[in-house]
Every structure is written in C-alpha cells, then in structure tokens.
Amino acid sequence: MEKTVFVSYVVLAVLVSLLLVFSGRGMLVGDKNIVETMERVGVPRRSYTVLALLKFAGALGLLAGIFYRPLGIAAAVGLVLYFLGAVVAHLRADDLKGAPSPFVLAVVSAIPLVLGLATA
C-alpha cells in the first residue's frame, strides 16, 4: 500500500509542478488570459514576478519532496495557502466567476500534502 501512495505522490508532484511552471511562465511573459484575471482581481503588475517565483518554488519543493518528504510537505502547505489566498482575492474583488479555479488548485495541491504525510 505504501508503494502505491508513494507512486501517487510522485505522479501528482510532477503533474502539479508542470502546471505551476506553465502558470508561472504565463505570469512572467504576460499571457493575456492571466493578465486579464490578475487585473480583474486587482493584483499590481509589479507582483507578477514574485507570484510566479512562488509557483516555481512550490513546484521545485514538490519535486524535491520525492527525495526528501518534509520539503514536499512544506511546499504543498505553501501551495494550498497560496491558492486559498487567490480564492480570497477573487471573492474580495467580487469575481465569483474566477474563484473556482484557484479553489480547485488548492484542493489539487492538498492531495500531495496528504500523500506526503501518508508516506513521511
């Protein structure tokens, strides 16, 4: 059973990391859809680099967690908090249409957290 949980962690860590890198890259290059969403929520452009770097750090932490589980757990906690913060930002901006995406990403980020804890 533990091997299955570990393999699940690895697969999800890789998939979530790819998603984070793709999203962070979009922030850095000013992808039209990402910029529109960020402007709608009221995120200043000067924050895009910091937010993208946080995504990259989360991706790196999840991948490092394959070899050193505490780092993966810490990264997953940070990602869950990051995306819950995004949900709050959408709700504060009355952007109910945009809130489900970061909520789903918070849940998806919580899965490696649970799997990491199960295999720690």
Rank of each mutant, 00 (worst) to 15 (best):
R45M: 05
E39S: 14
F22N: 07
F83T: 02
R45N: 01
A75G: 01
R92Q: 12
G30N: 09
D94C: 02
L62E: 05
A64F: 02
V11D: 03
L54I: 06
L62Y: 09
V7L: 15
T37V: 13
T49K: 15
L81Y: 02
I34V: 13
G26L: 06
A76C: 05
S101E: 06
I111F: 12
A75S: 01
L18A: 13
A64N: 03
L19Q: 13
V50N: 06
L60M: 05
T37R: 14
D31Y: 07
H90L: 06
S101V: 14
G30C: 10
D95I: 08
H90N: 15
V10G: 05
Y82H: 15
T49M: 13
V29C: 04
L71H: 00
V87M: 09
P102W: 01
P102T: 10
G72N: 09
G30H: 07
G98F: 03
S17E: 04
Y48M: 08
L54Y: 01
I73L: 11
V77C: 09
A13Y: 12
V107G: 01
L54D: 00
L105D: 00
G30I: 12
A106K: 08
L18K: 04
A52W: 04
A110Y: 02
V35C: 09
F56D: 01
A99I: 07
K55R: 13
L62W: 05
L62M: 11
A13H: 11
M38E: 06
G58F: 08
A106Y: 07
F56A: 04
V87N: 06
P102D: 05
P112V: 11
V88K: 15
V43I: 15
L91W: 10
V5H: 03
G42D: 03
S17H: 07
S23F: 10
V21I: 15
V5Q: 11
F83R: 05
H90F: 07
L19K: 07
V104K: 10
D94A: 13
G58W: 02
V77W: 06
N33D: 10
A59V: 06
V107R: 06
D95T: 08
V10P: 00
V87W: 02
V77R: 07
E36W: 04
D94Y: 10
L51T: 00
Y9E: 09
D94K: 15
E39W: 04
Y68A: 04
A89F: 08
V35A: 08
N33F: 07
T37W: 14
V88A: 14
L15I: 12
V88P: 02
S101I: 12
Y82M: 11
